[in-house]
């Protein structure tokens, strides 16, 4: 059911990006110690691999802010047999020597993939030379590098970045993701963000569902749901992982989203509630956020699911 375990090891970030979906900066939130991370991983490892794939994605905030904890968590994940990915903005790759040392340490304890978040906003805080150094070092060690590039309507892919020899000389996957205007409302959203009508067809949230664990142990079935508190289903410090998993698997709303995605909620809510603010979105996560951060719409969907009005009965 879940394609990975996600550990959000820190809600703190050394950057403050104007369009950040989660509003994180250097003052925000708290972090997960290496010991806590290891406990959460062991709990997730007890679940069947058919329920949660043996893959860990480590996110922040910025995970490298707490490097020692990060290294302990990667080591534990690797020892448990998880394939391990860390997502970072690359602020730490300031010299070849420090890059070699930090990347080398992580690879030595079992890191498999590094993903760099790079875009117009992050590049105001992190030099493109850092990105070159990080990619070069990871690739020199025969591992994979990915780039996540977030865009708003006024942006372009940064030419300096996509000219980098490191980007052109190896296999580099750049995932271009529209910024999701979480918490932004108003008539001009589709002018500032890359929004479009999503249509009714959706592959569902199957590919987006993860076993997301936040600092403090809260669990959610997806990253947006975790950060924004929409679909939190339990806490690993209070409830066994297996019980939390059962809650997700038996929750009518979450199973509906897993199978169908939120796209059909647009027409359902338009007919039932008369709302017309849901037509144009940056992504399915944007639509989901708009529906489930609004108590009235959220209740209407849950009522609809209870009465099978949004098509859950036939499943």
């Amino acid at each position: 059911m879940f394609s990975a375990v996600v550990l959000v090891t820190s809600l703190q970030c050394n950057e403050w990006c104007g369009f950040c979906d989660f509003g994180l900066d250097e003052r925000s939130g708290f972090s997960m110690s290496g010991k806590e991370g290891a406990e959460y991983l062991r709990a997730a490892h007890d679940l069947s691999p058919n329920s949660v794939a043996r893959r860990v994605e480590i996110l922040g905030g910025e995970p490298f802010l707490y490097y020692k904890d990060l290294r302990d968590i990667v080591r534990c994940a690797s020892q448990l047999g998880f394939r391990t990915e860390v997502v970072t903005n690359g602020f730490w790759a300031t010299t070849e020597e420090s890059t070699r040392r930090q990347v080398g340490d992580l690879l030595d304890v079992g890191l498999d993939e590094l993903t760099l978040t790079v875009d117009t906003y992050h590049l105001r805080h992190v030099s493109v030379a850092n990105i070159q150094r990080a990619i070069t070092e990871i690739r020199r060690r025969g591992r994979e590098v990915n780039i996540i590039y977030r865009v708003a309507r006024a942006d372009a892919l940064d030419t300096e970045l996509i000219r980098l020899p490191a980007v052109n000389s190896g296999i580099t996957a750049i995932t271009v993701v529209p910024w999701v205007p979480l918490g932004h409302r108003g008539p001009d959203i589709d002018q500032r963000f890359v929004c479009r009508p999503l249509g009714n067809s959706s592959p569902g949230c199957k590919n987006l569902f993860r076993f997301v664990v936040l600092p403090g142990g809260d669990v959610a079935p997806c990253v947006v749901g975790g950060f924004r508190g929409l679909h939190r289903v339990g806490n690993l410090n209070e409830t066994p992982a297996a019980e939390i998993l059962t809650r997700i698997q038996t929750d009518p709303l979450l199973t509906y989203l897993y199978d169908q995605g939120p796209n059909q909620l647009t027409s359902f809510l338009a007919s039932r509630d008369g709302t017309d603010e849901l037509q144009v979105n940056a992504s399915t996560c944007h639509l989901c956020y708009k529906v489930f951060s609004d108590g009235r719409l959220s209740s209407a969907v849950r009522d609809g699911l209870n009465s099978a009005a949004v098509g859950v009965a036939e499943r």
């Binding site: 892919l157 052109n168 996957a173 750049i174 271009v176 992504s283």
Partner: peptide
Amino acid sequence: VTDLAGTVIVC
């Protein structure tokens, strides 16, 4: 970016 958003570019 309107063309590229939602895609994966593999170089």
